[in-house]
């Protein structure tokens, strides 16, 4: 599948695995529920591990368990559900998560710019959408007023 990673279209090798499906070889992304139930086994297998975080995830409780996880997929059940933006910023700015942060679900071009500012670096665009055109979204703005995951300084600390 093609996804956007670090501003480029790339072939993605990660596999999303449903809770009731046996694990394939290679790098897999599982739900937080499955991760909770099979954590040790999942971390022990060869291949990298990713975990899908639901929009109401409690990071205080969950983050300490995520040691060893290489990728976190933030679920956007609807593009109008903005909880994932806060989750992403906290993961980057407060928990210092260094792995891949991926937006999954109802991910559309016109949300990409803000998502990237919040620290999301990979995007599974909603099926059927123009992925090439979506890259434009990153170039639409050259001005940002706030500090965020991409640069902690608000404009007033950068203004020349």
């Amino acid at each position: 599948m093609e996804i956007i990673r670090n501003g480029e279209i790339v072939q993605d090798r990660w596999q999303h695995v449903a809770d009731d499906t046996p694990l394939p070889e290679g790098d897999v992304i599982v739900s937080l529920t499955r991760f909770g139930a099979e954590r040790d086994a999942l971390l022990a297998r060869p291949g990298k591990l990713g975990v899908r975080l639901p929009p109401d995830v409690d990071l205080v409780e969950t983050f300490p368990l995520l040691d060893g996880v290489a990728l976190l997929a933030i679920e956007f059940p609807k593009y109008t559900d903005g909880r994932g933006y806060s989750t992403a910023r906290l993961l980057r700015e407060r928990y210092d998560f260094k792995g891949e942060l991926r937006a999954v679900g109802d991910v559309l071009r016109d949300q990409l710019f803000y998502m990237r500012r919040c620290g999301i670096d990979a995007f599974e665009l909603k099926a059927g959408k123009d992925i090439k055109g979506a890259l434009e979204a990153f170039r639409e703005f050259s001005v940002t007023y706030q500090g965020a995951a991409d640069d902690p300084r608000p404009l007033f600390r950068r203004r020349g």
């Binding site: 903005g82 933006y85 949300q111 710019f113 803000y114 703005f141 940002t144 007023y145 706030q146």
Partner: peptide, 14 residues
């Protein structure tokens, strides 16, 4: 105004 304009975290509030 400046802080809230294009705030990346708060564009899709409840």
């Amino acid at each position: 105004r400046q802080w809230s304009t294009f705030h990346p975290e708060f564009a899709f509030l409840p």
